[in-house]
Amino acid sequence: MAAEEHSPLAQFEIKPLVSLRLGDLDLSYTNSALFMTIAMVLAASFLLLATRRSALVPGRWQSMAEISYEFVANMIRDNVGQEGRKYFPFIFSLFMFVLFGNLLGMIPYSFTYTSHIIVTFAMAAVVFIGVTVIGFKKHGLHFLSFLMPAGVPIFMAPLIVPIEILSYFTRPVSLSLRLFANMTAGHTMLKVFAGFVALLGVFGVVPLLLVAALTGMELIIAFLQAYVFTILTCVYLNDALHLH
């Protein structure tokens, strides 16, 4: 048990907090769900409290809320264009959810739900399916033309089309895998070095400095991965809206 507790992977363990069963289905409220709730509450209260007074000249919190709004809005405008405005609330929620999940994971003894493949894959799958549906809705069967890039000779079709389909289906996998791998690797590494600090006692100063540096890098990665996840969503959406 003690060894289990100190394993660098122990932080990723799911522990049910409130057991909940629906027939054969396990719907327990776990530590993962708890941190999702915390992230949701934090994101919502940050944006709602910061804009409570609707000051014309913003305070520190309000300008942070405005910056995050404009950050995502610019991302959509640059990558999707005017048509992307419709999807702004979804993309903004996605960005906030991933960002707060990543940042919450930086707190010691907390849980990082973005380091769970099923969570990142579910989000990527929603993006993937949503984008595909949008593409078919907008272009009808013509949307399938992306499987055959312009300028490829027709006899190549039997080879190119399956490859393109496979390539299309790798999107949600690489999207979710990227976030999952980054968060898992970063947090495992932090935990390992933190373990060294405890193990080495007085001589733990060196790994301690390393942990401090790694923590700084992890903060950047936490933000960067949220950014990458969101921007790839924008790129996919753009592909579906504007066929090449």
Binding site: L27, M40, L47, A122
Partner: peptide, 29 residues
């Protein structure tokens, strides 16, 4: 399954709050 279940509930909740309250307020400002 439990993670997916709560992810869906919480994300939809976040989406609704953003769409209905937070984002209109910021865009109004």
């Amino acid at each position: 399954l439990p993670q997916l279940f709560w992810l869906a509930i919480i994300f939809v909740l976040l989406f609704v709050i953003m769409r209905r309250h937070a984002l209109p307020r910021i865009s109004d400002i």
